[in-house]
Design a protein around this nucleic acid. Sequence first.
DNA 1: TTGTAAGCGTTATCAT
DNA 2: ATGATAACGCTTACAA
Lengths: 330, 330
Amino acid sequence: MTSIKDVAKAAGVSTATVSRVLANKPPIRPETRERVMAAIAELNYRPNLVARSLRAQKSAKIGLVVSDIRNPFFTAIGRAVEDAAYEKGYSVLMCNTDENPEKEMLYLNLLHDENVAGIIFSPTNQFCTQAADFHFDIPTVLIDRSMQNKEADMVLLDNVSAAYELTEHLLANGYRKIAGLFGDASTTGPERSQGFKNALKANGLSPFSVEFVSPRIRSGFSAASALLQGADCPDAIFTSNSMLTAGAFQAIREFKMNIPGEIALVGFDVTEWGEFVDPPITVIAQPTEEIGRTAVELLFQRLSNPNRSARTVILKGNLLKRGSSAVRAK
Amino acid sequence: MTSIKDVAKAAGVSTATVSRVLANKPPIRPETRERVMAAIAELNYRPNLVARSLRAQKSAKIGLVVSDIRNPFFTAIGRAVEDAAYEKGYSVLMCNTDENPEKEMLYLNLLHDENVAGIIFSPTNQFCTQAADFHFDIPTVLIDRSMQNKEADMVLLDNVSAAYELTEHLLANGYRKIAGLFGDASTTGPERSQGFKNALKANGLSPFSVEFVSPRIRSGFSAASALLQGADCPDAIFTSNSMLTAGAFQAIREFKMNIPGEIALVGFDVTEWGEFVDPPITVIAQPTEEIGRTAVELLFQRLSNPNRSARTVILKGNLLKRGSSAVRAK
DNA sequence: TTGTAAGCGTTATCAT
DNA sequence: ATGATAACGCTTACAA
């Protein structure tokens, strides 16, 4: 491994000078600079980021902690964060927690130990209770899911409004017996259920049913299956995330029911499959690119100004009306 | 930041002793050990991984370099690698290259600079030509895509056989005018086209067409659209990766053609949408979990034995026969 | 069984 | 404009 010493020796200067050239810190004589640059090129020298990080007590890395990279929402977020970070010369350490609070703790600690500059985190409910007193000594931006009583920067969706709008859309199209299926792992499920219930109430209705299950395809499948085989069947299923939507979709197909003729289906988040099936699925599209970019933005703002008060950015979802919730036939 | 010194002071021992306790390196008196552990707990001390890495000249991180995390194949690989690494106490630095050789170089260098223990890498064709002389001084396992003339560990699919089998399946079900759409960014496209052509030849047929395009949905869409609007239209489209399959699917839908009645569609890789559409899409399923785990396995074997000769593991794809290639109606 | 001290590759301070 | 040197937090000979 060629180090800064080798370069210094080759260029006939001190390591301090090499360091200055690298950091572009005047004063430096153009001529010296040349010599150093030549030596660097010659030796194919690359600064050791670990040493740099140890010395500087920070690094150009940010940690991204999400529950499941296979969830298209988080995949998209990951991509957006990666792109935004890349532009600023930062790289991303991506961590999967599997909705498991232990893994969350483990990764948060790891990131700390790795000297990351900042963390973008989407916490589970369990984490929020179990680690209520967890102290973020590294600048952290929460996304998608909020934490109570934490003074932290956040980028969230206006979940209540979005769910309200989605429910109103179902109502406007003639659905009346609407079952709600919500994720139980984070704050988004309860918030979206709130909007759902509010909309129904505002129209003098009540939910056909309200259920909270783990945000997995199979949970969505089981829950929806139970609904469909009941004597009294809903005419629409409202799901709070794409895992549940997928599970419900599978269940509906299993029962060979027609969408939306026999049952409508709506949910959250853009997925490929939701666009490709016939009819395609009506969803609230989250601005993933914007969420990711904003999170990175907020992080950098905090890095440059550690003392400013916490800021919460709330973004609006975008209702994509599609076939799965078309006007109900008489 | 509490360091090893603070612990040493609190426990009334030297830093060396603390270090030994941490590393569980005898000899150490149980009593001393106790005192140190107590101090660690008391101070809430966590070792600084950066310092450790600088000192040890390595770290418990592995780099994963893939072209697009949104490609479900790579998402699945990422998950598998992450899980396997986690079990061994390693964390994963996930890097997106966007099929861009510059980004590939950049990330490879970054990983080097970060002192990662090893790299799992899926290179583009361009990288292979442009960086033919790139020297991997860090243990590296190539996955999905091979590199010529490189003595490196690899985990690959038997692409030729898989494509052969997939093509035979189409032939067995009565399709004769089969268009091939292949990715041009890596070695998989050419290899799969080989199996495709071999199978046709073995049956005294030739391809309806063979085309290489960039592995993006929109490229698949354009290429397939062109095929479908021709005066002479294929009766099946064979795609070499799920991005192209998705593009072709969109094109077919745009043309309001019936699958498989008017045109069959087959491809590679399991996707959610491919299972959910009606009829679902026939594909070669790659054993992503196994690929990821094997890559990590190979990496650790090399770490513990740097001099053994390179090993290539070739896995078999699994043909999932589904409706999109059902027996052709007369 | 434990302590001392050197050194991993940087950068920043203080001289020169 | 440049050089010497200490320090970042840790591990590991070597000494005691």
